[in-house]
Amino acid sequence: MALSVAILLFAGFILLGSYIFKDKTDIRTVRTQASLTTHELFTQLQAKNDVEYSPYIEKAIEVKGVIKEITVRDGVYSIILDGDNRERHILCEMQRDQNNDIVTLAVGEEVVIKGILKGLLLDAILLNCILV
């Protein structure tokens, strides 16, 4: 009896610990909800009555676009894709495991990026991104 309680308690602690300290999202394991061009993404976001309730917010999407700029800060790269006009772009913060592939990219190159759409400020913002 005591052994069973101890096993149950131990299993409970393991489950609780794995919940509290569970790993960050690995985008590879998340199902892609939509594959869009940058133009299609902005068109769809702006077509909604309220962009903040877009069905793609907090979902994994793939976006095809042309690289406008690549930035890096504290070892984390971001790829900025040309948007639907010169003012609005798509800002993709990349996962660290993409660094070796990103350094081979150049401005003007077309890429497909998968990430979690967080929302729209002036730019559309995606986090946890990977190159597809």
């Binding site: 509290i20 300290f21 569970k22 960050k24 929302g119 002036l122």
Partner: peptide
């Protein structure tokens, strides 16, 4: 200044 609340990243997912 405009800030997306969902773009804050934490050490722990929970």
């Amino acid at each position: 200044v405009s800030i997306l609340i969902k773009a804050f990243k934490f050490e722990k997912s929970l």
